[in-house]
Amino acid sequence: MSGSRPQPTDARPQDLPVKAELPRLRVEYVKDSRLAFLGHLDLIATVERCIRRARLPFSVGNGFARRVRIQFTSALPVGASSTCEYFDLRLTERLDADEALALLRAATPSALEPVRAAYVPGRLPALEAWLNRSSWEVAAPGCAFDAAQIARAVEAVRERGELTYLRGQKEKRVDVAATLAGFEARDVDGGVELSVETRLAGCALRPQVLLDAATDVLGLPRVAAPRVRRVGQAHEESGRLVEPFGPFCEKDGTPLS
């Protein structure tokens, strides 16, 4: 019985679609409310199921596991929410981007709502490596420091160059000098709000890790449950920032608009 039916893998390699030529749909979505606690692997599986439910003409890889051809941005820490996550999906046909967005929205839980979709050049680098800049907002309600104190403490952490911390059993080493691209703190009612700019360079700098290291410098108790939110992602090239949806310029990059 099995021998009589052609299987997808029986296709000759030269007949298989070339990935770079397949339409590449970039989708921006949020990660909000209680789904902030969804881990990265669970998120990947969930988005794949949303795509299948939306019945988009997704392309499937040729490997053993027959996975949907999809790429994600760098993992959010569990518990952090985001207004700007992205995935790139390879389609087998160029469906209208707005129509694809509408189909996706109808098939996705509201806490992961897709908010924008557009086609991007097929030969752009992998999404996770390409979006190498993140902007974060951190709310530290009820903290025992003010904005000026924590700003000085963060500066002290940056001057040390390297930060080590334990994640589970593993020791992580973060190059703060390379990964911390900007920092601001504001006093607000009942606490402090921080804006943190990070850059991908080796081990990722998590805003909460930075905050913990800075409060340790101050000799104060760590903030029990800071609220961390990613509010921007971009591609940094030769000192300029390119937004996720472009405009793209092959040679010189495009300044942040």
């Binding site: 969804l38 669970d42 949303c50 518990g79």
Partner: peptide
């Protein structure tokens, strides 16, 4: 561990 165990709101 695995806070997703307690989230509900699944599709």
């Amino acid at each position: 561990e695995h806070p997703a165990r307690y989230l509900d709101h699944e599709w």
